[in-house]
Design a protein around this nucleic acid. Sequence first.
DNA 1: AATGAATGAGAGTTCATTCAT
DNA 2: TATGAATGAACTCTCATTCAT
Lengths: 202, 202, 202, 202
Amino acid sequence: MQNPESPKYQQQKLAAIRAAAAVFARKGFHGASTTDIASEMGIKQGSLYYYFKSKEEALAEVCLYGIREYVQRMEEIATSEQPFEARLLATVTSHLSSYREKNEALKVHNDERLYLPEIKRIKLKQLGSHYRELLEGIFEDGVRDGALREGLDCHFAAQSVIGICNAWGELIVRDNELDVFEVIQKVNDLLLNGFVPPKATA
Amino acid sequence: MQNPESPKYQQQKLAAIRAAAAVFARKGFHGASTTDIASEMGIKQGSLYYYFKSKEEALAEVCLYGIREYVQRMEEIATSEQPFEARLLATVTSHLSSYREKNEALKVHNDERLYLPEIKRIKLKQLGSHYRELLEGIFEDGVRDGALREGLDCHFAAQSVIGICNAWGELIVRDNELDVFEVIQKVNDLLLNGFVPPKATA
Amino acid sequence: MQNPESPKYQQQKLAAIRAAAAVFARKGFHGASTTDIASEMGIKQGSLYYYFKSKEEALAEVCLYGIREYVQRMEEIATSEQPFEARLLATVTSHLSSYREKNEALKVHNDERLYLPEIKRIKLKQLGSHYRELLEGIFEDGVRDGALREGLDCHFAAQSVIGICNAWGELIVRDNELDVFEVIQKVNDLLLNGFVPPKATA
Amino acid sequence: MQNPESPKYQQQKLAAIRAAAAVFARKGFHGASTTDIASEMGIKQGSLYYYFKSKEEALAEVCLYGIREYVQRMEEIATSEQPFEARLLATVTSHLSSYREKNEALKVHNDERLYLPEIKRIKLKQLGSHYRELLEGIFEDGVRDGALREGLDCHFAAQSVIGICNAWGELIVRDNELDVFEVIQKVNDLLLNGFVPPKATA
DNA sequence: AATGAATGAGAGTTCATTCAT
DNA sequence: TATGAATGAACTCTCATTCAT
């Protein structure tokens, strides 16, 4: 069926993934219909099956697409030779701005991937874990460098960064007025310093 | 469906709301069927309509149920005469432990309320805003007391607390092994101090 | 179940028949629900079964009720010692005014009786035939008396009277402004003389 | 459901309308199921929705179909240059023979259109009024020509023609033995001359 | 005499999926 | 490469009916 790896096919397939991402983000996996997706990309419902074997596979591909570039960027950040603070800022920036750039696929990955059967989630789990591990690595480096507190729970820290970025990401998607750059700054600051003023040490 | 505020009816209605909450939390609104809900509470599918006019109304009631007690607890915290740090800890504790106590309704409120029509969301919005405002008030008090940094964006702070708690909440619901008490401590600490060691002031 | 032939029961049963008639007339047999009927008479749905074994039986009773008094009146007219013209007028008057007096049961009989199973329609058929035969008898008398044309098809005539009365009856039920007395006069006149002016005979 | 004015679609759609007409005529709108209609046209129930958006819309289309050609024929009769008597006969013939030619759609229009919501009835009302007005016009012409009595209530006359034709139409549909031609003659005669013999004028 | 509660069957409708063209 | 047509399963919802109280 996918015999033609023709450029036209590749291009349409990408359009299909993006259309599916947009619709899943808006309506959720179960709330979205194949008709919705097809009409989002300007074709008829039946034609969708030329690009996806099933609706579920569409979800799988969207999730993969969503997290893949997200991990890629993290890979670049993690391997870059920068001080901790720069890398954290880069992480937060990458994560949050991906939401504004209408990367609906990431939102879909976060919210809907659980509706995939275990098997189709393996790859996603690997990528997700990889992402978290890279981020944990950054934190570990930070601790080693003295940029971070001794004894910091790096796993907890990484999860928290992901969590707070996703939370603000949803707000960003929902509220177009939000100044993403400002949010990035503040999130970054919160993660570094918390809300409490530095205690005057004697 | 009926007037009768009979105790039997009230009790069954509550069971219905809880059953719906459990199923919606597990499968999402669109992924859950009324058969699922009915069998969760041990009645037949058609009988569910004795307690809910529609599936959508069931969602509305679950959301309301979920957020109501959540706001109530916040109200108590906000009006208590405690220093900022105690109130923040109480907030985080209240929020996170509600997830462990299988308050699936709160998760449903967070994840599924957007599938309600605008009209049925008004009340929820009010409650949500009220919660956030109470929390903002706590932060404003903290700034005034000097417990928090001068010039802190209290709106941002409140949103961040809610966001990070919801993120960890999902993890708690998904992973039964997680030590909630430990998470609470660490989240609290992150919010107060961030990840960076206090700068040695000269 | 109907053990108590108490006056209260009889009275409520009549109310039930009338309520059913009103609802069936408004919504049709299949379009009406037992809830509609019950609430029309101010009781709860389940209680209806105290008066009717089934919805179908309710229809049967309404139809019977509707046609019974209608036939009774015809019986009086048919046995009265009046000239043809007076009896025709009485027939049309009886038929049409029964519609204005909200005898919805008659309308139900006309429109919905076909939804009854053959068996439950036997009695109705007898009554209907009896009505038509009485009316045919009136016409036969009229022919014999010379009040009507020689060779008139009395069966056709009777059916036509019934048909035109039912047709105007529906209009009367639907349009409250209609002057029933005027309609009666005109229908009567149409049946007697038609629309053409009497030919001047040499 | 679709744009395609493909001949196949048009043909199947017509088959769907006719099937719906047959079933609605037999069982009434509420008594008929979409399964009935589908199996009448030899497709599966779900497939029906390829041709109708809803059962209600099926009813609307059947009614429209039923009354449309009926009005068309009347238009031809009304604009023809014939004496009154010929036009009345043509009207009665058109009306009654349409019942024998299994135009169940007309019966459905008469009996079931009230179950449509107001909005979907507007077009039907217009057509119905148009029909009546054309018929009234024929009567007015007849009065002007002297073919009809001075002072005849033409509105009443038109309604009566429609009413009596519909009444006999139902009988024709129900009783296959009835000689339609004979009924037409007699109805026509009744409308023209009534049942009373012409008074011998001195 | 009446009701609250429940049921099961069936309704209309949607939708993922298939396939000939 | 894409579509029109059809399907069958699942879904939400309604409703006549029953029965303990």
